[in-house]
Amino acid sequence: MAGATSLHAGGDVAARFENRAATREPAWFKWMLIAVSLTFFALFLLMPLIAVFVEALRKGWDTYLAALIEPDAVSAIKLTLIAAVIAVPLNLTFGVAAAWAITKFNFRGKHLLITLIDLPFSVSPVVAGLIYVLVFGAQGWFGPWLQGHDVKIIFAVPGIVLATIFVTFPFIARELIPLMQAQGKEEEEAAVVLGANGWQTFWYVTLPNIKWGLMYGVILCNARAMGEFGAVSVVSGHIRGLTNTMPLHVEILYNEYQFAAAFAVASLLALLALVTLAVKTWVEYQATKAKDVTE
């Protein structure tokens, strides 16, 4: 549901419509619509992206690089990577397990389960952070016990990881469920009848079928994990060099009017976004190719 664009293998169909008089609009309309749409696109999507890089390099390369190798920036980059490295594999395991249970078996309450998996997408990031404060914070359910045992979750790294897991929770499951539903379970059943065990069936039959969808989900999950701001901001406590992720570091620099430094760190995240989009486009291309071969 929300948050996710899903893998859609389809070729370019424009020619089909443009070559027929009955499904073609007049040229003036075509170019007007393209002009209006692209202006909107440029104003709202392209210009902000360009602005990030222009602002980052406004004071030259030296300031840019200095902002990136400064110790607080480096520790923010590390923490962002740690959060993603923990959150993505956990949600990947969950996504595969959930998709297997939901698409290969029939059981009561399946639709409710799918809706519940979607839930984190419709919860505001700020609320996502708040719920962990209520559970693990000083005044929360486990707060006194955690304090007694000298374990810190809120305003520490575990809280950041938990909040990241929550906001990226549905990404991979959401991608796999429709895909595996469409593929049915005949191939897996054939494998089991031929003597394969569960792991072999998954590894040699299911995985090759879902690999592009899986990659798609992982890429989007990772982008969100590294870029999450609202949820992480609530549980972080903003301790420099300790509990700041890259987006939080950007915020601190920006609020201190260190605009060039803020945009320098932001430009790394923008690069990550561009790489995400490039890999995503490549995966879509591969999936379309694979689909054309099988058809």
Binding site: L45, P48, L49, E55, G227, L248, A266, L277, A278
Partner: peptide, 17 residues
């Protein structure tokens, strides 16, 4: 490809940009 930018670009970056 760039239509999905808001999904991929961290919200804080979009905000300051």
């Amino acid at each position: 490809a760039l239509i999905d930018l808001p999904f991929a670009l961290p919200t804080a970056v979009a905000g300051i940009a």
